[in-house]
Each structure stands twice: as structure tokens, then as C-alpha cells.
């Protein structure tokens, strides 16, 4: 396994990655992830099926998410975030908080809508 990219300093998660991680704090399948993200962002982010598929596979390979439960004919494949995944999500929150702090000091406290 190549882990070099994990060590990029200050690397931000892509929005796709981060939202998928958030969608998987509860077990969810592909379609559920798409719906969760669309609803959570009020339709701002609508993931394409191909992008979602690629991201799921990458996250599985990195072991940030794992298959959940048994897959049967009638039930779709479900996934759940792993401890590593949660750790990465937490790191991302810290990074975002830092950026937000910096931006607020410079631009001012006003919240844009």
C-alpha cells in the first residue's frame, strides 16, 4: 500500500470525501449516501454515480470506511465509517476551524449568507 499521499502536510479532504465520511456515521448504501448528501447540503452538492463509486472504492482501500453487514439479494451493500475514518474526519474539522478562525480575523466576524 502506498501511503505517501496521506502524509501531505495540511492536505484538505475533498468535499466529496468528507461528505461521504459524514454520511457513513450510520450504515448506509450507495443510494442512501447520495440522498444524504443532497439533503444535508440542500441540493448544493449532488454526487454523480461514477464519482461516488470511485470515492467509495478509494475509501475502502484506505480503510476509512468498511463494508457493513451481510449483502443479500434483497439488501444493497452497506458501508460504515471506521476508526481511521473518524480520525480523518476529526482532523478535517480542526483544519476547517483553523481556516475559519483565520478568515474571520481578516474578513471580520460578519457571517455571509
Amino acid at each position: 500500500m502506498v501511503n505517501i499521499r496521506d502524509n501531505i502536510k495540511g492536505g484538505a479532504l475533498t468535499e466529496t470525501t468528507f461528505l461521504i465520511l459524514l454520511a457513513l456515521y450510520k450504515p448506509n448504501h450507495g443510494y442512501g449516501i447520495m440522498q444524504f448528501i443532497e439533503e444535508a447540503t440542500n441540493g448544493r452538492v449532488v454526487l454523480g454515480a461514477g464519482t461516488l463509486y470511485g470515492a467509495i472504492n478509494t475509501l475502502l482501500m484506505k480503510k476509512w470506511i468498511a463494508p457493513f453487514g451481510e449483502e443479500t439479494e434483497s439488501r444493497k451493500k452497506e458501508y460504515l465509517i471506521t476508526d481511521i475514518g473518524k480520525q480523518m474526519a476529526r482532523k478535517e474539522i480542526n483544519r476547517m476551524a483553523e481556516v475559519l478562525r483565520l478568515a474571520s480575523t481578516i474578513i471580520g466576524g460578519e457571517k455571509s449568507k
Binding site: 475533498t14 454523480g48 464519482t51 470511485g54
Partner: peptide, 23 residues
């Protein structure tokens, strides 16, 4: 070739730049 029932949302399979570049 993929078909969906038209629901008013765009039928885009690839939605982030990195993934579009790949395909």
C-alpha cells in the same frame, strides 16, 4: 448506456473535477 427517468436533476455521472479529469 445508462437510463434514468427524468427527474429535473442533471444526469451527471462525474461531479468533481478530479474525477472528471480521470474519466
Amino acid at each position: 448506456i445508462l437510463e434514468k427517468t427524468r427527474d429535473g436533476k442533471p444526469f451527471d455521472l462525474h461531479t468533481d473535477i478530479c474525477d472528471k479529469l480521470r474519466i
